[in-house]
Nucleic acid binder design. Structure first.
Lengths: 135, 135, 135, 135
DNA sequence: GTGGTCTAGACCACA
DNA sequence: GTGGTCTAGACCACA
């Protein structure tokens, strides 16, 4: 469910924060939905459980997640983050900015970057088309 | 010359590493070109000189920069990174990957992301169009 | 494990670089072997931890050491430096050269220098004879 | 007359100090003998004159050299450093120590090191034999 | 416990 | 002016 890159320079717990927020913002994780257990994530990514736990704790403090005695944590009933497209586009601002900064410093044209995004997307699942084909 | 974001989670010296590599890869910094002095960058971004110095030292160890006793550091004669478009597109892979990960988790469609890149680009200089319109 | 001389004119972190490389070249530090922790070395030699850390970081950049999140650094699986006698003799070239330069400028004869090396060696452990006498 | 290595980690002015002391200790530079001018040395080694000047000034402060208005500096009449073999052997102690440290860490035997010194000596002038053949 | 990042500040080597 | 070395100390990320 999560994709963690220990080499990226971004702290692992921060990568987790971002990804949980996005999954909620996108509606993939709906209010009440259970999160994978700390241990599960820790084993799968060969990361210390405390690191996962820290991310979950911060999200709980934010009101995004809820702790349930003896059961997996769940998405809070009314998390701050919400679903409208507008919000979701804002959640991705940082990544856009990083991309544009890199592109400009590499003297790439807009065309070249758009092509690259387009082509890279093809290599992966297209969430949009999946939505369309699911009904 | 550099754009540093202390909030981003990515260590400042790592942001510098990336940006210097890109400026060289794009040809904006040519072999022999001097880099801004450690102090200069430090003052401009209100960052400790040692942080800048660390980035420069690592780039020297990589063979990208050259030290000149008593004078500013310069781009190495034959830095590993070179200019061909192919290479430059590779330099931006990480940023593309980050963007796509975020987009998928936010359930954004390819269309929505391409539009966002397109529109955001308009807010800034377009190196490509500048090149085209200058003759 | 290390012998550091703050008076020698050679920066401390550089002395460390040399010594780690030698210990690996000699096989005393094998691939996977843990290095003494930054704090340990720092306390033992009354040196600032960052100085040790800097040496370790440069050796990591060189591919000689490997970082292990939360655990001591280790010798890389395939460090550039290897064990053959030939290589080890090369690692000592600088020291030989320094010695010969000094000897010539002091107008010492080869005999005098060889005697001095011979005699000085007696004051210390002779790794070779130890190897020979152990069976 | 001097052999300077800017890469060695040892400051250039310190290399100069050592070498002047040795040349005097060995009798190659006798009391009253002129030293090469600051400018001469600076040009020959592509080093800033201030660096040479600094070394000379320190040696003057030590009483090893004497300044002569309008003429080259000379070796002082009674420099501290003197000629007896005993003294000269002491002047080379640091280099011996560095060599032995490296040798032990590389697990080289005394035999191997003596051979290496012997062989390396052959590649260069042998001051001793020169002395013998000069009469 | 491990290493990493950053700061503030002193002082050095070199041009 | 340039960069380099080192310290003391705060705080972070991870096991």
């Amino acid at each position: 469910m999560f994709i963690l890159n220990p080499q990226s320079g971004v702290p692992i717990y921060r990568q987790l924060l971002d990804q949980v927020r996005r999954l909620i913002a996108s509606g993939r994780l709906e209010p009440g939905a259970p999160l994978p257990s700390v241990r599960e994530v820790a084993v799968e990514h060969a990361v210390n459980p405390m690191t996962i736990s820290k991310a979950y704790a911060l999200l709980e403090a934010e009101g995004v997640l809820e702790r349930n005695r003896g059961k997996p944590m769940t998405v809070a009933a009314h998390p701050k983050s919400q679903i409208p497209l507008r919000e979701r586009l804002r959640e991705i601002d940082d990544e856009i900015e990083q991309l544009l900064l890199a592109a400009r410093q590499l003297q790439l044209s807009k065309r070249e970057v758009l092509d690259l995004v387009d082509k890279s997307w093809g290599d992966e699942d297209d969430a949009s088309s999946r939505r369309r084909t699911r009904p």
